[in-house]
Design a protein around this nucleic acid. Structure first.
Lengths: 380, 380
DNA sequence: TATACTGCTGAATCTTAAA
DNA sequence: TTTTAAGATTCAGCAGTAT
C-alpha cells in the first residue's frame, strides 16, 4: 500500500463530520473488527470519553503452579501476544493516535494497564500531545499472591487519565467524587476487589474473559468524567463492562471488539443491564454550574437592605452595604464583595459570598445563605 | 590450546578494571558533580543497588494559592527545569544507561517518580534491557490536597524496581518483607507519610530540600533488596536520605550531588546517623526464620503480664490482658488483639499490634515494640 | 495538666466567562 | 487575543499557644 492510500482515508474522515457524511455515530452498538481499522472509520471529534483496556503484553514464561500444585490460569490468549516490545509500542501509538482524532476537543481518555505496558502507554500519551491529568492506582483488595515468593505481591493496576492537551478543557464532576468519598476529596488511589462472584461472566463454569474489569471501577470513571448523554467509546470492549455501566448511568456507548465470543457475552449482558431512573442519576452539582447571582440583586430584592453592616466570621473586618451592591469599609475603601474582601485581607483573591457575614437571630451567617434562599425562591 | 589458556583471557578481562585503574570505589562518600559525568568515572559492574530520585520535570504553571489565601511553596528549582519533553527523555536514557554499566550483573535499580516523568523512566528502563520486577506505589497518608477541585488528589508516587535483564538474578529478602508485614506477603502498595516533623531537614526554619524523601521508604527498599555490606549508589543524592539509611542498615553507599548546600546538609546528617548493632541487623535480615509471634507468647514470657490494661493511643478504649493472650474489654467483649480492636472501633479490620498500647516510663507505647524486643532477644 | 484551637505545610503540571 | 472580574477551593499532621 502506498503512502497516499494510507493517508487518504484518514483525511476523508477528518473532513467527514462537518461536510461529507451525515455523521451518524453507531451509538449503543458493538462494532466487530480490528481496533485500529475500526477506529479509522469513525468520524473525528465525535466522542466525549474513551475508556481503553488494551492488551497488557504480559510476556509470561512457562506454566505457573500454586504451592498446592494447582495450575494458575494465566492470560495466554493470542490477542495478548506481540512479537517484540517495539511492535507493542507501535501498536500502542497507532491506536492512541486514532483515539485522539476521534475525541472531541474537550474529551478525555482513560487507559488501564500494569507495569508490563503502562509505561509505554503513558510515554506514548505524552508524545502524542495528550496532557496527563492524573494517574490512578487501582488497589486490589484481593490480589493474586506471588506464589514463588520472588517479588512483591502485584496488588495494583494503574490507570492514566489525560485530556486533549495542556490547555484543553475536560469534564470532572468534582462534587460527585467528593460526595462519593464521604465528603473528602477523592484521592488517586482507589480500592476495589477484582472482578469475581456473580459479576464475573462465565460459560459452562469457565470465565468468558481472562481480564474482566470490575464494574465499580468503570462506574467511578464515568461518574467522574462524563455527563448524562455523553458518548463513551471502548476500543477494547471485551465482554462489555463499559457498555453495561454506561447504560446504567444513562450514557451512550460504542464498543469495538474482534472476538465473536466476547461480543455475544457482551450483548447479552448489556441487554440485561437496567438503567438507573432519573432521580437516582442525579448527582451533587458543583456551584460552578449554578446560575450566577449578583450581590446587587439581593439588595434590590430586599434580602439585604442598603445600610446594613457586614463583617467577616471573626468580626475583624466590617463594611457597609451600599445601594448599588458595593461595599464600603470603615476606612473608606470600596469595591465588590470579592474585591473588598481581598483588599482587607491583603489576599490575592477572596470569595465574598463566604467571607462576608450578616447578623441573624441564629448568630453570624455567611451571605451565601441569602444567595441560596434567593435561588430556591426564584428557581421554583 | 588447553583449558587453562582458554580461561585466562576471560579472567584477565574481569580483573582488568582493578589493574588498569586504581579501582577503589569511593565508598561512603558524596561525589560532587553532574550526575552523568560523575557516573561515567565509576567502574563498571561495581555496585549492588542503585536508588534514584531524579528530577520529575513538573512543568508547573503560575503561582498557586490555597483556599485560605496562603501561598503554595512549589518546586521551582532550576534542577527540575528541562527545555522540552524530548530533552528530559534523553537525559533519562543517558543516566539510566550509565547506571546499567555501573551495576553488577546481579544488581538492581529503583527509581521513584510521579506521573510527570515515571512513564518516560519506565519506558527507557524497558528499552535499555532492564527487566521490571515490580512497580510500587507509595501511598501518601497526608498528601497535599488539590486546592482548586480540578482533579483527583495526587496522593501517591510510583517506584520501579528492575533487574539487569530477563534472566538476571537479583536480591529479594522475601522473609524480611513478610515479617515486616505481619506475616503477610508484602504488597506493591506501601503507605507512608510524607517527610515532615523532626525528620525534615531545615535551616533557619526553611526546608533544605524541596523533595526530601521519608527514610522509611528507603529503609524498606534497602532491607528488601540488599544484603549487609552491599554497595548502594544514589546518583541524585540530595540531602542524603539514602546514605543515612544505608549507614543505619550496615550497607555501604556512594552519593552523587551537584549542589553544595545539599551536600553540606547530607554530610552532617549522615555523620549523626547511628548504625544498628549487629544483632538488630540480623533479625531484620533473618533468612527463613522470623517466626510469627503470637501475642500470647509475650504474655507467657512476661513481656506483658496477664491483668495488665492496654488502651488505644487516645486512651478511648481499654482492655484487660488475659492469661491466654486474649483481651477483655470493660463491657465484657473478648477476642484477640486484632478482633477486639476492630470490634471496639466498629471497623472491618484492625492491626492489634499497632492499635493497642501499654504504659511505659516513657509514656504510651504500641505493643508492637514489645514484639520487636522479643524478636531481638530470641533471634540472637 | 490535658484539651482545644490556631497556624503552617507538603514533588501541584490546580478557574472561567465575559469584555 | 488579552484583560478583568467573579467567585470556587483543602487534608493530615505537627507545632505552638490559649483555655
Amino acid at each position: 500500500m502506498g503512502v497516499l492510500e494510507k493517508i487518504r482515508p484518514a483525511k476523508a474522515a477528518v473532513i467527514a463530520p462537518s461536510l461529507a457524511l451525515p455523521v451518524v455515530l453507531p451509538l449503543d452498538q458493538i462494532l466487530r473488527g480490528d481496533c485500529i481499522a475500526t477506529m479509522r472509520a469513525l468520524p473525528a471529534k465525535s466522542v466525549d470519553l474513551i475508556f481503553a483496556d488494551p492488551p497488557y503484553n504480559l510476556q509470561l514464561g512457562g506454566d505457573l503452579a500454586r504451592p498446592d500444585g494447582s495450575h494458575v490460569d494465566a492470560v495466554t490468549d493470542e490477542w495478548d501476544k506481540f512479537a517484540s516490545l517495539e511492535i507493542y509500542d507501535r501498536f500502542t501509538r497507532e491506536w492512541l493516535f486514532e483515539a485522539k482524532r476521534i475525541l472531541k476537543d474537550n474529551g478525555a481518555i482513560w487507559v488501564i494497564g500494569s507495569y508490563h505496558n503502562i509505561f509505554k502507554v503513558g510515554s506514548a500519551i505524552q508524545d502524542l500531545g495528550y496532557w496527563i491529568l492524573n494517574d490512578i492506582v487501582w488497589r486490589k483488595s484481593n490480589p493474586m499472591p506471588n506464589f514463588k515468593g520472588t517479588r512483591f505481591t502485584n496488588a495494583h493496576e494503574t490507570l492514566i487519565w489525560a485530556s486533549m492537551g495542556e490547555k484543553a478543557r475536560y469534564t470532572f464532576n468534582y462534587r460527585s467524587m467528593k460526595t462519593l468519598n464521604d465528603e473528602l476529596q477523592m484521592r488517586s488511589d482507589w480500592e476495589f476487589p477484582v472482578c469475581g462472584g456473580p459479576e464475573r461472566l462465565k460459560k459452562d463454569g469457565v470465565k468468558v474473559h481472562p481480564t474482566q474489569k470490575p464494574e465499580a471501577l468503570i462506574y467511578r470513571i464515568l461518574l467522574a468524567c462524563t455527563k448524562p448523554g455523553d458518548v463513551v467509546l471502548d476500543p477494547f470492549f471485551g465482554t462489555g463492562t463499559t457498555g453495561a455501566v454506561a447504560k446504567r448511568l444513562g450514557r451512550r456507548w460504542i464498543g469495538i471488539e474482534r472476538e465473536a465470543d466476547y461480543i455475544a457475552a457482551a450483548e447479552e449482558r448489556i441487554a440485561a443491564a437496567l438503567p438507573l431512573d432519573e432521580s437516582a442519576l442525579k448527582t451533587m452539582q458543583s456551584p460552578k454550574t449554578a446560575p450566577k447571582v449578583a450581590f446587587g440583586v439581593l439588595v434590590e430584592n430586599g434580602y439585604l437592605t442598603a445600610g446594613r453592616v457586614l463583617c467577616d466570621a471573626k468580626r475583624k473586618h466590617r463594611a457597609l452595604v451600599r445601594a448599588d451592591g458595593s461595599l464600603e469599609s470603615v476606612c473608606g475603601q470600596t469595591g465588590s464583595i470579592h474585591k473588598l474582601g481581598s483588599l482587607l485581607q491583603n489576599a490575592p483573591a477572596c470569595n465574598g459570598w463566604t467571607f462576608w457575614h450578616h447578623e441573624t437571630p441564629d448568630g453570624l451567617k455567611p451571605i451565601d445563605t441569602l444567595r441560596q434562599t434567593y435561588l430556591l425562591a426564584t428557581q421554583i
